[in-house]
Design a protein around this nucleic acid. Sequence first.
DNA 1: ATTATTCTCTACCGATCAGTACGGAATTGT
DNA 2: ACAATTCCGTACTGATCGGTAGAGAATAAT
Lengths: 202, 202
Amino acid sequence: MGRPREFDTEKAIARAMRLFWSQGYEGTSLTDLTEELGITRPSLYAAFGSKEALFLKALDLYETRAGYREAALAAPTAYAYAQALLEGAADLHGDKNNPPGCLGVQGALACAPQSNSIREELARRRRVGEATIRDRLKRAKIEGDLPAGADPADLARYLSIVIYGITVQAAGGATRKELQSVAKLALQNWPRASNLKRKRDA
Amino acid sequence: MGRPREFDTEKAIARAMRLFWSQGYEGTSLTDLTEELGITRPSLYAAFGSKEALFLKALDLYETRAGYREAALAAPTAYAYAQALLEGAADLHGDKNNPPGCLGVQGALACAPQSNSIREELARRRRVGEATIRDRLKRAKIEGDLPAGADPADLARYLSIVIYGITVQAAGGATRKELQSVAKLALQNWPRASNLKRKRDA
DNA sequence: ATTATTCTCTACCGATCAGTACGGAATTGT
DNA sequence: ACAATTCCGTACTGATCGGTAGAGAATAAT
Protein backbone atom coordinates (compact mmCIF):
# COMPACT_ATOMS: atom_id res chain seq x y z
CA MET A 1 0.00 0.00 0.00
CA GLY A 2 0.99 3.62 -0.28
CA ARG A 3 2.83 5.34 -3.04
CA PRO A 4 5.23 3.08 -4.93
CA ARG A 5 8.93 3.94 -5.16
CA GLU A 6 9.77 5.76 -8.36
CA PHE A 7 13.26 4.31 -8.85
CA ASP A 8 14.70 0.84 -9.11
CA THR A 9 16.64 0.07 -5.95
CA GLU A 10 18.68 -2.66 -7.65
CA LYS A 11 19.82 -0.31 -10.37
CA ALA A 12 20.47 2.35 -7.76
CA ILE A 13 22.73 -0.02 -5.82
CA ALA A 14 24.56 -0.88 -9.03
CA ARG A 15 25.19 2.79 -9.73
CA ALA A 16 26.26 3.39 -6.14
CA MET A 17 28.62 0.45 -6.42
CA ARG A 18 30.42 2.00 -9.36
CA LEU A 19 30.70 5.28 -7.54
CA PHE A 20 32.12 3.71 -4.38
CA TRP A 21 34.36 1.60 -6.56
CA SER A 22 35.82 4.69 -8.22
CA GLN A 23 36.04 6.98 -5.25
CA GLY A 24 36.05 4.80 -2.16
CA TYR A 25 33.72 5.07 0.80
CA GLU A 26 34.91 8.36 2.22
CA GLY A 27 35.56 9.87 -1.19
CA THR A 28 31.95 9.43 -2.20
CA SER A 29 29.61 12.05 -0.75
CA LEU A 30 25.87 11.88 -0.42
CA THR A 31 25.65 14.60 -3.04
CA ASP A 32 27.66 12.40 -5.42
CA LEU A 33 25.31 9.54 -4.70
CA THR A 34 22.03 11.42 -5.08
CA GLU A 35 23.21 13.03 -8.30
CA GLU A 36 24.40 9.75 -9.77
CA LEU A 37 21.32 7.84 -8.64
CA GLY A 38 18.96 10.63 -9.68
CA ILE A 39 17.13 10.61 -6.36
CA THR A 40 16.89 12.91 -3.39
CA ARG A 41 18.44 12.44 0.00
CA PRO A 42 15.25 11.47 1.84
CA SER A 43 14.56 8.87 -0.84
CA LEU A 44 18.01 7.44 -0.39
CA TYR A 45 17.66 7.27 3.36
CA ALA A 46 14.17 5.78 3.16
CA ALA A 47 15.38 3.09 0.78
CA PHE A 48 18.77 2.21 2.27
CA GLY A 49 18.96 3.63 5.78
CA SER A 50 22.35 5.28 5.66
CA LYS A 51 25.43 5.81 3.54
CA GLU A 52 27.10 2.97 5.36
CA ALA A 53 24.19 0.57 4.76
CA LEU A 54 24.15 1.50 1.08
CA PHE A 55 27.87 0.86 0.88
CA LEU A 56 27.44 -2.60 2.37
CA LYS A 57 24.69 -3.37 -0.14
CA ALA A 58 26.95 -2.15 -2.92
CA LEU A 59 29.73 -4.33 -1.54
CA ASP A 60 27.48 -7.39 -1.58
CA LEU A 61 26.59 -6.68 -5.17
CA TYR A 62 30.26 -6.20 -6.00
CA GLU A 63 31.14 -9.57 -4.59
CA THR A 64 28.53 -11.28 -6.73
CA ARG A 65 29.44 -9.30 -9.83
CA ALA A 66 33.15 -9.92 -9.34
CA GLY A 67 32.26 -13.57 -9.20
CA TYR A 68 35.50 -15.02 -10.51
CA ARG A 69 36.43 -16.11 -7.02
CA GLU A 70 33.38 -18.27 -6.65
CA ALA A 71 33.54 -19.51 -10.22
CA ALA A 72 37.14 -20.56 -9.70
CA LEU A 73 36.08 -23.01 -6.99
CA ALA A 74 34.72 -25.22 -9.75
CA ALA A 75 38.21 -25.77 -11.14
CA PRO A 76 39.23 -29.42 -10.89
CA THR A 77 42.81 -29.03 -9.64
CA ALA A 78 44.69 -26.68 -7.35
CA TYR A 79 46.63 -25.38 -10.30
CA ALA A 80 43.53 -24.76 -12.37
CA TYR A 81 42.02 -23.03 -9.35
CA ALA A 82 45.00 -20.75 -8.90
CA GLN A 83 44.99 -20.05 -12.61
CA ALA A 84 41.28 -19.24 -12.61
CA LEU A 85 41.75 -16.90 -9.66
CA LEU A 86 44.67 -14.98 -11.09
CA GLU A 87 43.36 -14.81 -14.62
CA GLY A 88 39.94 -13.87 -13.29
CA ALA A 89 41.44 -11.00 -11.32
CA ALA A 90 43.47 -9.85 -14.32
CA ASP A 91 40.40 -9.99 -16.55
CA LEU A 92 38.10 -8.18 -14.16
CA HIS A 93 40.51 -5.45 -13.20
CA GLY A 94 41.88 -5.10 -16.69
CA ASP A 95 38.39 -4.47 -18.03
CA LYS A 96 38.27 -0.84 -19.03
CA ASN A 97 34.50 -0.81 -18.59
CA ASN A 98 35.01 -1.19 -14.87
CA PRO A 99 36.42 1.40 -12.52
CA PRO A 100 40.12 0.73 -12.00
CA GLY A 101 41.01 -1.26 -8.92
CA CYS A 102 39.02 -3.30 -6.45
CA LEU A 103 36.23 -2.02 -4.24
CA GLY A 104 37.23 -4.42 -1.51
CA VAL A 105 40.72 -2.98 -1.41
CA GLN A 106 40.36 0.69 -2.15
CA GLY A 107 36.94 1.15 -0.58
CA ALA A 108 38.59 2.03 2.70
CA LEU A 109 42.14 0.76 3.02
CA ALA A 110 43.05 3.74 5.18
CA CYS A 111 40.45 6.17 6.42
CA ALA A 112 39.41 8.56 9.14
CA PRO A 113 38.70 6.93 12.49
CA GLN A 114 34.95 7.51 12.11
CA SER A 115 34.92 5.17 9.11
CA ASN A 116 36.81 2.44 10.88
CA SER A 117 33.82 0.12 10.85
CA ILE A 118 33.90 0.12 7.06
CA ARG A 119 37.65 -0.42 6.97
CA GLU A 120 37.33 -3.34 9.34
CA GLU A 121 34.45 -4.84 7.40
CA LEU A 122 36.54 -4.79 4.24
CA ALA A 123 39.48 -6.35 6.04
CA ARG A 124 37.15 -8.99 7.41
CA ARG A 125 35.87 -9.82 3.94
CA ARG A 126 39.40 -10.05 2.63
CA ARG A 127 40.17 -12.52 5.39
CA VAL A 128 37.11 -14.54 4.44
CA GLY A 129 38.24 -14.53 0.82
CA GLU A 130 41.65 -15.81 1.80
CA ALA A 131 40.11 -18.44 4.06
CA THR A 132 38.05 -19.68 1.12
CA ILE A 133 41.18 -20.08 -0.94
CA ARG A 134 42.93 -21.79 1.93
CA ASP A 135 40.11 -24.27 2.38
CA ARG A 136 40.12 -25.11 -1.30
CA LEU A 137 43.87 -25.71 -1.18
CA LYS A 138 43.58 -27.82 1.95
CA ARG A 139 41.15 -30.01 0.08
CA ALA A 140 43.55 -30.12 -2.84
CA LYS A 141 46.31 -31.31 -0.57
CA ILE A 142 44.15 -34.06 0.86
CA GLU A 143 43.32 -35.07 -2.67
CA GLY A 144 47.02 -35.29 -3.44
CA ASP A 145 46.77 -32.31 -5.69
CA LEU A 146 49.57 -30.42 -3.99
CA PRO A 147 53.05 -31.65 -3.04
CA ALA A 148 53.61 -32.78 0.53
CA GLY A 149 55.80 -29.81 1.38
CA ALA A 150 53.28 -27.23 0.25
CA ASP A 151 51.49 -25.23 2.94
CA PRO A 152 47.91 -24.34 1.94
CA ALA A 153 47.94 -21.34 4.27
CA ASP A 154 51.10 -19.94 2.71
CA LEU A 155 49.87 -20.60 -0.80
CA ALA A 156 46.50 -18.98 -0.06
CA ARG A 157 48.31 -15.95 1.27
CA TYR A 158 50.43 -15.90 -1.83
CA LEU A 159 47.45 -15.99 -4.15
CA SER A 160 45.74 -13.30 -2.10
CA ILE A 161 48.63 -10.92 -2.21
CA VAL A 162 49.08 -11.42 -5.94
CA ILE A 163 45.40 -10.60 -6.44
CA TYR A 164 45.71 -7.53 -4.20
CA GLY A 165 48.77 -6.44 -6.09
CA ILE A 166 46.95 -6.82 -9.37
CA THR A 167 44.17 -4.58 -8.08
CA VAL A 168 46.61 -1.93 -6.91
CA GLN A 169 48.38 -1.95 -10.23
CA ALA A 170 45.03 -1.78 -11.99
CA ALA A 171 44.14 1.25 -9.88
CA GLY A 172 47.28 2.86 -11.24
CA GLY A 173 46.15 2.28 -14.80
CA ALA A 174 47.71 -1.02 -15.87
CA THR A 175 46.29 -2.66 -18.98
CA ARG A 176 44.61 -6.04 -19.06
CA LYS A 177 47.50 -7.42 -21.05
CA GLU A 178 49.99 -6.33 -18.42
CA LEU A 179 47.88 -7.84 -15.66
CA GLN A 180 47.52 -11.08 -17.58
CA SER A 181 51.25 -11.37 -18.07
CA VAL A 182 51.88 -10.91 -14.38
CA ALA A 183 49.20 -13.46 -13.55
CA LYS A 184 50.95 -15.90 -15.84
CA LEU A 185 54.26 -15.17 -14.22
CA ALA A 186 52.87 -15.67 -10.73
CA LEU A 187 51.62 -19.07 -11.82
CA GLN A 188 54.85 -20.26 -13.33
CA ASN A 189 56.23 -21.87 -10.23
CA TRP A 190 53.00 -23.03 -8.74
CA PRO A 191 53.71 -26.33 -7.02
CA ARG A 192 52.02 -29.05 -9.02
CA ALA A 193 51.70 -32.55 -7.63
CA SER A 194 51.63 -33.79 -11.19
CA ASN A 195 55.17 -32.51 -11.61
CA LEU A 196 56.29 -34.29 -8.52
CA LYS A 197 54.49 -37.43 -9.54
CA ARG A 198 56.13 -37.31 -12.92
CA LYS A 199 59.50 -36.92 -11.20
CA ARG A 200 58.73 -39.78 -8.85
CA ASP A 201 57.50 -41.94 -11.71
CA ALA A 202 60.57 -41.26 -13.79
CA MET B 1 65.48 37.68 11.05
CA GLY B 2 62.14 37.79 12.75
CA ARG B 3 60.72 35.49 15.34
CA PRO B 4 62.04 31.95 15.11
CA ARG B 5 59.67 29.03 14.62
CA GLU B 6 58.80 27.35 17.90
CA PHE B 7 58.50 23.83 16.54
CA ASP B 8 60.79 21.51 14.62
CA THR B 9 59.50 21.22 11.08
CA GLU B 10 61.32 17.94 10.52
CA LYS B 11 59.71 16.34 13.54
CA ALA B 12 56.39 17.80 12.50
CA ILE B 13 56.68 16.22 9.05
CA ALA B 14 57.56 12.91 10.67
CA ARG B 15 54.46 13.08 12.85
CA ALA B 16 52.32 14.10 9.89
CA MET B 17 53.74 11.18 7.93
CA ARG B 18 52.58 8.69 10.52
CA LEU B 19 49.13 10.27 10.55
CA PHE B 20 48.77 10.19 6.76
CA TRP B 21 50.17 6.69 6.82
CA SER B 22 47.48 5.53 9.21
CA GLN B 23 44.52 7.43 7.84
CA GLY B 24 45.33 8.33 4.25
CA TYR B 25 45.25 11.78 2.73
CA GLU B 26 41.53 12.40 2.82
CA GLY B 27 41.07 10.60 6.10
CA THR B 28 43.44 12.98 7.86
CA SER B 29 41.89 16.35 8.70
CA LEU B 30 43.66 19.56 9.52
CA THR B 31 42.33 19.22 13.04
CA ASP B 32 43.98 15.79 13.26
CA LEU B 33 47.21 17.30 12.01
CA THR B 34 47.30 20.34 14.26
CA GLU B 35 46.44 18.25 17.32
CA GLU B 36 49.08 15.63 16.53
CA LEU B 37 51.71 18.21 15.66
CA GLY B 38 50.85 20.44 18.59
CA ILE B 39 50.66 23.57 16.47
CA THR B 40 47.91 25.84 15.24
CA ARG B 41 46.51 26.06 11.75
CA PRO B 42 48.21 29.31 10.75
CA SER B 43 51.55 27.88 11.91
CA LEU B 44 51.00 24.83 9.77
CA TYR B 45 50.11 26.91 6.74
CA ALA B 46 53.03 29.28 7.26
CA ALA B 47 55.44 26.38 7.48
CA PHE B 48 54.10 24.05 4.79
CA GLY B 49 51.71 25.99 2.58
CA SER B 50 48.81 23.59 2.45
CA LYS B 51 47.62 20.18 3.47
CA GLU B 52 48.61 18.88 0.07
CA ALA B 53 52.14 20.32 0.29
CA LEU B 54 52.56 18.83 3.75
CA PHE B 55 51.42 15.47 2.43
CA LEU B 56 54.00 15.60 -0.33
CA LYS B 57 56.72 16.45 2.19
CA ALA B 58 55.55 13.55 4.33
CA LEU B 59 55.63 11.34 1.27
CA ASP B 60 59.22 12.32 0.51
CA LEU B 61 60.18 11.49 4.07
CA TYR B 62 58.34 8.18 3.81
CA GLU B 63 60.28 7.21 0.75
CA THR B 64 63.58 7.85 2.46
CA ARG B 65 62.52 6.12 5.68
CA ALA B 66 61.15 3.15 3.77
CA GLY B 67 64.54 2.93 2.17
CA TYR B 68 64.64 -0.79 1.49
CA ARG B 69 64.00 -0.14 -2.19
CA GLU B 70 67.09 1.97 -2.59
CA ALA B 71 69.17 -0.26 -0.36
CA ALA B 72 68.19 -3.26 -2.44
CA LEU B 73 69.85 -1.73 -5.48
CA ALA B 74 73.19 -2.58 -3.92
CA ALA B 75 72.47 -6.29 -4.17
CA PRO B 76 74.93 -8.04 -6.50
CA THR B 77 72.53 -10.26 -8.45
CA ALA B 78 68.98 -10.04 -9.76
CA TYR B 79 67.95 -12.73 -7.33
CA ALA B 80 69.55 -11.02 -4.38
CA TYR B 81 67.87 -7.81 -5.49
CA ALA B 82 64.44 -9.42 -5.67
CA GLN B 83 65.06 -11.03 -2.32
CA ALA B 84 66.11 -7.74 -0.74
CA LEU B 85 63.01 -6.03 -2.12
CA LEU B 86 60.52 -8.62 -0.94
CA GLU B 87 62.14 -9.23 2.42
CA GLY B 88 62.52 -5.49 2.87
CA ALA B 89 58.83 -4.97 2.22
CA ALA B 90 57.88 -7.79 4.57
CA ASP B 91 60.14 -6.39 7.28
CA LEU B 92 58.93 -2.81 6.95
CA HIS B 93 55.25 -3.57 6.76
CA GLY B 94 55.45 -6.33 9.32
CA ASP B 95 56.99 -3.92 11.83
CA LYS B 96 54.37 -3.32 14.49
CA ASN B 97 55.97 0.03 15.33
CA ASN B 98 54.84 1.33 11.95
CA PRO B 99 51.29 2.02 10.87
CA PRO B 100 49.95 -0.97 8.97
CA GLY B 101 50.21 -0.75 5.20
CA CYS B 102 52.03 1.54 2.82
CA LEU B 103 51.57 5.29 2.55
CA GLY B 104 52.21 5.14 -1.17
CA VAL B 105 49.36 2.69 -1.65
CA GLN B 106 46.73 3.64 0.88
CA GLY B 107 47.43 7.36 0.92
CA ALA B 108 44.90 7.87 -1.87
CA LEU B 109 44.20 4.72 -3.86
CA ALA B 110 40.62 5.86 -4.44
CA CYS B 111 39.44 9.28 -3.41
CA ALA B 112 37.07 12.15 -4.12
CA PRO B 113 37.70 13.93 -7.43
CA GLN B 114 39.08 16.99 -5.65
CA SER B 115 41.97 14.90 -4.34
CA ASN B 116 42.80 13.44 -7.72
CA SER B 117 46.11 15.26 -7.89
CA ILE B 118 47.27 13.33 -4.84
CA ARG B 119 46.00 10.05 -6.21
CA GLU B 120 47.82 10.67 -9.47
CA GLU B 121 51.01 11.68 -7.72
CA LEU B 122 51.00 8.43 -5.78
CA ALA B 123 50.34 6.44 -8.96
CA ARG B 124 53.20 8.32 -10.61
CA ARG B 125 55.57 7.44 -7.79
CA ARG B 126 54.53 3.82 -7.96
CA ARG B 127 55.35 3.87 -11.66
CA VAL B 128 58.74 5.37 -10.90
CA GLY B 129 59.34 2.67 -8.34
CA GLU B 130 58.52 -0.03 -10.84
CA ALA B 131 60.68 1.63 -13.48
CA THR B 132 63.59 1.55 -11.05
CA ILE B 133 63.11 -2.16 -10.56
CA ARG B 134 62.82 -2.67 -14.30
CA ASP B 135 66.03 -0.78 -14.98
CA ARG B 136 67.89 -2.85 -12.43
CA LEU B 137 66.60 -6.05 -14.01
CA LYS B 138 67.49 -4.86 -17.49
CA ARG B 139 71.02 -4.38 -16.29
CA ALA B 140 70.90 -7.82 -14.74
CA LYS B 141 69.88 -9.30 -18.04
CA ILE B 142 72.70 -7.59 -19.86
CA GLU B 143 75.06 -8.92 -17.24
CA GLY B 144 73.77 -12.41 -17.90
CA ASP B 145 72.12 -12.48 -14.52
CA LEU B 146 68.70 -13.46 -15.87
CA PRO B 147 67.76 -16.19 -18.34
CA ALA B 148 67.34 -15.21 -21.98
CA GLY B 149 63.59 -15.76 -21.93
CA ALA B 150 62.99 -13.52 -18.91
CA ASP B 151 61.34 -10.16 -19.54
CA PRO B 152 62.59 -7.47 -17.15
CA ALA B 153 59.34 -5.51 -17.57
CA ASP B 154 57.22 -8.50 -16.62
CA LEU B 155 59.46 -9.40 -13.72
CA ALA B 156 59.46 -5.82 -12.46
CA ARG B 157 55.69 -5.81 -12.61
CA TYR B 158 55.65 -9.07 -10.74
CA LEU B 159 57.86 -7.79 -7.97
CA SER B 160 55.79 -4.62 -7.75
CA ILE B 161 52.50 -6.41 -7.41
CA VAL B 162 53.89 -8.76 -4.79
CA ILE B 163 55.07 -5.74 -2.81
CA TYR B 164 51.69 -4.03 -3.19
CA GLY B 165 49.97 -7.20 -2.12
CA ILE B 166 52.17 -7.40 0.94
CA THR B 167 51.19 -3.86 1.88
CA VAL B 168 47.49 -4.58 1.47
CA GLN B 169 47.76 -7.67 3.57
CA ALA B 170 49.74 -5.71 6.14
CA ALA B 171 46.97 -3.12 6.21
CA GLY B 172 44.63 -5.93 7.10
CA GLY B 173 46.75 -6.91 10.06
CA ALA B 174 49.11 -9.61 8.81
CA THR B 175 52.11 -10.43 10.99
CA ARG B 176 55.70 -10.02 9.93
CA LYS B 177 56.15 -13.76 9.96
CA GLU B 178 53.25 -14.22 7.55
CA LEU B 179 54.59 -11.55 5.25
CA GLN B 180 58.04 -13.09 5.34
CA SER B 181 56.71 -16.48 4.40
CA VAL B 182 54.86 -15.06 1.43
CA ALA B 183 57.95 -13.15 0.35
CA LYS B 184 59.88 -16.39 0.47
CA LEU B 185 57.22 -18.14 -1.57
CA ALA B 186 57.18 -15.39 -4.17
CA LEU B 187 60.92 -15.82 -4.54
CA GLN B 188 60.91 -19.57 -4.93
CA ASN B 189 60.49 -19.61 -8.66
CA TRP B 190 62.52 -16.55 -9.42
CA PRO B 191 64.36 -17.23 -12.68
CA ARG B 192 68.03 -17.57 -11.89
CA ALA B 193 70.59 -17.63 -14.64
CA SER B 194 72.72 -19.79 -12.39
CA ASN B 195 70.04 -22.47 -12.54
CA LEU B 196 69.95 -22.30 -16.29
CA LYS B 197 73.67 -22.31 -16.53
CA ARG B 198 73.81 -25.31 -14.32
CA LYS B 199 71.31 -27.02 -16.57
CA ARG B 200 73.23 -26.01 -19.65
CA ASP B 201 76.49 -27.16 -18.11
CA ALA B 202 75.02 -30.49 -17.13
C1' DA C 1 65.44 51.78 21.45
C1' DT C 2 63.38 51.46 17.19
C1' DT C 3 61.81 49.23 13.18
C1' DA C 4 61.09 45.40 10.26
C1' DT C 5 60.09 40.84 10.12
C1' DT C 6 58.09 36.56 11.28
C1' DC C 7 55.88 33.84 14.24
C1' DT C 8 51.47 32.34 17.09
C1' DC C 9 47.03 33.02 18.53
C1' DT C 10 41.82 33.60 18.49
C1' DA C 11 38.32 33.76 15.76
C1' DC C 12 36.46 33.41 11.76
C1' DC C 13 35.33 32.35 6.40
C1' DG C 14 32.35 29.92 2.88
C1' DA C 15 31.75 25.26 1.49
C1' DT C 16 30.59 20.81 2.33
C1' DC C 17 29.73 16.84 5.30
C1' DA C 18 26.00 13.16 6.71
C1' DG C 19 21.48 13.20 8.02
C1' DT C 20 16.41 14.91 8.77
C1' DA C 21 11.75 17.65 9.64
C1' DC C 22 7.96 18.55 7.30
C1' DG C 23 4.47 19.41 3.88
C1' DG C 24 2.43 18.12 -0.41
C1' DA C 25 1.72 14.53 -3.94
C1' DA C 26 0.70 9.95 -5.34
C1' DT C 27 -1.06 5.46 -4.65
C1' DT C 28 -3.23 1.87 -1.94
C1' DG C 29 -7.27 -0.61 0.41
C1' DT C 30 -11.89 0.10 1.83
C1' DA D 1 -15.06 9.02 -2.20
C1' DC D 2 -12.25 8.51 1.64
C1' DA D 3 -8.62 7.35 4.90
C1' DA D 4 -4.27 5.33 5.50
C1' DT D 5 0.13 4.90 3.89
C1' DT D 6 4.27 5.84 1.54
C1' DC D 7 7.10 8.58 -1.34
C1' DC D 8 9.25 12.86 -3.03
C1' DG D 9 11.04 17.65 -2.82
C1' DT D 10 12.42 21.76 -0.38
C1' DA D 11 14.81 23.39 3.02
C1' DC D 12 17.08 22.85 6.81
C1' DT D 13 20.22 20.99 11.04
C1' DG D 14 24.73 20.98 13.60
C1' DA D 15 29.25 19.50 12.64
C1' DT D 16 33.25 19.52 10.12
C1' DC D 17 35.94 20.53 6.03
C1' DG D 18 40.34 23.24 4.29
C1' DG D 19 41.96 27.69 4.67
C1' DT D 20 42.65 32.67 6.34
C1' DA D 21 42.25 37.69 8.41
C1' DG D 22 44.05 40.35 11.70
C1' DA D 23 46.07 41.41 16.04
C1' DG D 24 49.57 40.70 19.38
C1' DA D 25 54.03 38.64 20.83
C1' DA D 26 58.79 37.57 20.01
C1' DT D 27 63.01 38.08 17.66
C1' DA D 28 66.25 40.10 14.36
C1' DA D 29 69.00 43.93 12.32
C1' DT D 30 70.08 48.75 12.86
